[in-house]
Design a protein around this nucleic acid. Structure first.
Length: 255
DNA sequence: GTTGAGCGTT
């Protein structure tokens, strides 16, 4: 199904979570499902997204029903190329609530979890807003010299050159995307919108030449007066310009 | 439209 993680964490008590790193930012759970489903029973797949932009953060969590299948998936899918990117599959070390996890399974069972135990010390469900912008920018400044950077870049470039056969354009994702969502492109109906509850924009239809000038009074008042002045519709005399009779004499036009 | 170390949501 396509609704992995839509209904929240189903049950991780008897599931083994795998952490998939180094995936592309366009890779979705549906893309990873066939890969992992081939090696075992996938219970759920979840890809954390950014709460501001809603984009993927570059990693996913795959839950298997059995440990052996999860282990096989790690051994098989670890290092595989998905969407042109080498993914890294490994057992999750932390749970949804940062609980200890061994082999993708929760080992740190809270003894007094009769209703509320770990809730006693609830850490921030989400990253601090102030650090929210930093949690990904922290490692940007690396000690990479331009030489090494250039070398890595060159290697990566070479890798990409070898990767694409003859004419691989960045539209590879588009083709796949179009393959799955072409319905949406064809009929842009309200019913065809993806289950994601993202709101594109409250205003569905707006005039092309819409003037987004805030209708706030005050300083805008005088500006409005200026703009209203050049209106040729009203003559300085208070008489409509079009109301001028063509039979007006030349001498009358000396105003 | 971009980026690339890491551990998760109704």
């Amino acid at each position: 199904m396509s609704h992995f993680g839509r209904s929240g964490p189903p049950d991780i008590k008897d599931t083994f979570s795998l952490l998939v790193l180094n995936i592309t930012f366009r890779t979705t759970a549906d893309d990873l499902f066939p890969f992992f489903d081939k090696y075992g029973k996938v219970v759920d797949i979840f890809i954390p997204r950014d709460r501001r932009t809603g984009e993927s953060r570059g990693f996913a969590f795959v839950r298997y029903k059995y440990a052996d299948e999860a282990q096989k998936a790690v051994d098989r899918l670890d290092g595989r190329i998905v969407d042109g990117r080498e993914i890294t599959v490994q057992f999750a070390k932390y749970g949804p609530n940062a609980e200890r996890i061994h082999k993708g399974r929760i080992v740190e069972t809270f003894p007094k979890s009769r209703g509320r135990s770990r809730s006693h010390s609830p850490r921030r469900r989400y990253r601090d807003d102030n650090r929210d912008r930093d949690y990904r920018r922290r490692s940007r400044s690396r000690s990479y010299d331009r030489y090494e950077s250039d070398r890595y870049r060159g290697r990566e470039r070479d890798y990409r050159r070898r990767s694409r056969s003859h004419s691989a354009s960045p539209d590879y994702r588009r083709g796949r995307y179009d393959d799955g969502r072409r319905n949406l492109s064809r009929s842009r109906s309200i019913d065809s919108v993806s289950p994601t509850r993202y709101t594109p924009s409250p205003k569905r239809n707006f005039p092309p030449r819409v003037t987004p000038s805030p209708p706030r009074g005050g300083s805008q008042d005088r500006l409005s007066g200026e703009e209203r002045s050049p209106s040729r519709s009203i003559s300085p005399r208070g008489r409509p310009a079009g109301s001028r009779s063509p039979s007006l004499h030349k001498s009358d036009a000396d105003d």
